[in-house]
């Protein structure tokens, strides 16, 4: 399972756009190719933002879920 290989976690719950994306970009910069990052967010705007960011930067958005008002994104560094 891919989720087992998550090596980094980022909690941006309570933050609004653009902080989740910017913090994610900074975190991903420090990661090696193939590493996985889990991001937890509460801003509904983060859904289109993470999808667009993934497409633009080529870092794969391998999973996105919503549970109890918390969005969970799994990103894989290209």
């Amino acid at each position: 399972m891919e989720t087992l290989s998550i090596t980094r976690r980022l909690d941006v719950k309570g933050f609004n756009c653009p902080i989740p994306i910017v913090k994610t970009a900074i975190q991903m910069k420090q990661m090696a190719s193939g590493e996985m990052l889990e991001v937890l967010a509460t801003d509904p705007g983060s859904v289109p933002d993470f999808n667009a960011w993934s497409k633009t930067t080529g870092n794969a958005l391998v999973e996105q879920t919503l549970e109890g008002g918390i969005y969970r994104f799994i990103l894989k560094k290209r």
Binding site: N16, C17, P18, I21, G45, W53
Partner: peptide, 10 residues
């Protein structure tokens, strides 16, 4: 822009 649009508020 830090985002995929001109301003944070859509």
């Amino acid at each position: 822009s830090p985002l995929n649009r001109a301003f944070t508020i859509e």
